[in-house]
Simulated assay, not measured.
Amino acid sequence: MSVSVGPVKAAMTRQSVSLRELARRTHYDVAHISRALRGLQRPSETLMRALADALDLSDDDDRVAYAARHPGRIDAAGVRALAASLAAQRRADDVVGPGPLVNAAEAQREALTALVRETSGKHRESLTAVASQASQFAGWLRIELNDYPRASALLNEAIDLADEIEDGSLAAQAHNLRGNIARQRQQWNAVHRNSVAAYAGESAPRQRVVNGAQAAWALTVLDRRGEAEQLLSEVEALRDKAADCAPPATAYWLTPEWMSLPIGHAHLLLGRHRDAAEHLRTGLYSLPLELRYALWTSEARAALAEAEA
């Protein structure tokens, strides 16, 4: 891996790593590292590789930094590489959780949003879509960490970026996560408002199932049972049709089985424990073992235990 000075300095700031600590990790002299990072001497490949390893950098860090330094050189391949970097972080969250990823995700989102402001031309729209996804992903990590004020700010940013390029699907995904925050706070009118906005704005059938089911949860809690049952019936019919459609690239986890999870939650709130347990088991047991007990499945596991009890 080849990495330049910029990502190293950014990572030092992000991780609060001092020159002295970096020297301890790499066994290089402090003054030698300082001169290299300040541009007073040309750093060797060996030194840069050692610094990158000490800070756990990847090629993706260098790619984002290069793009930020050269906004006029953004092309289709560069946008695809940035999207691939973000996709890799999403996959990592499934395995290691939000803690190790959140600072890097925030840094990447900051670099991408700055890059959007400086970029013009035919690739700006696709770059803006990646920036919206980055803000949304950073917001999701903050939700996992129960940092709801920061999550809300990031999701608002994701919606603004999606609206700028009139991407209703990306905006709907962020509205759905805003509904998730409201649900954690027991703000059920806000859950309903955001979920309905997501349900109406989303074109991908599988994502609509999730949005509609969450709206049905809210209607049940708001004592609008008739509306909840009608919407849930509509969502279940949509789920059967959605099974034949591919999931959005930004929501790879939406398998036909996984869509049973939000439906199971809605059945549980309606007091249909047997139906709830069946749907929740279907959704959870479809996941690979390494994901079945991930942080983001804890709510579904608790709901299944309640339904079976």
Rank of each mutant, 00 (worst) to 15 (best):
K122A: 11
R14N: 08
D29H: 05
L86W: 13
E110Y: 14
G72Y: 01
L19C: 10
T282Q: 03
R63C: 13
A131T: 00
E21W: 06
K122N: 04
S195L: 04
Y285G: 10
R14A: 02
A81F: 02
E157G: 12
H70P: 00
R206L: 03
L155A: 00
V191I: 01
A251Q: 10
A218E: 09
D94Y: 06
E110C: 04
G226D: 13
L82D: 12
R124N: 07
I181H: 02
L170R: 08
E110D: 15
M48T: 11
W253Y: 15
A197C: 10
R91Y: 02
H70K: 02
A204P: 04
A172L: 08
L270A: 05
L101N: 09
A174Y: 01
R178W: 03
Y285M: 14
L280A: 10
D163R: 13
A243N: 02
D160A: 14
A76C: 01
P248H: 09
S233L: 13
G97H: 07
G97A: 06
E110R: 15
P247Y: 11
A242R: 08
G99K: 12
V210E: 04
N156H: 06
A10V: 11
L112T: 07
N156G: 04
L47P: 03
W253H: 12
T297D: 11
K241W: 02
V210I: 10
A300Q: 11
E290R: 09
A138S: 15
R178E: 10
P247E: 14
A218R: 10
V209Y: 04
E157M: 00
R185T: 14
H267W: 12
T255Q: 00
A200D: 11
E290Y: 15
R69M: 09
E21R: 03
T255M: 05
A242H: 14
S2R: 13
L261W: 04
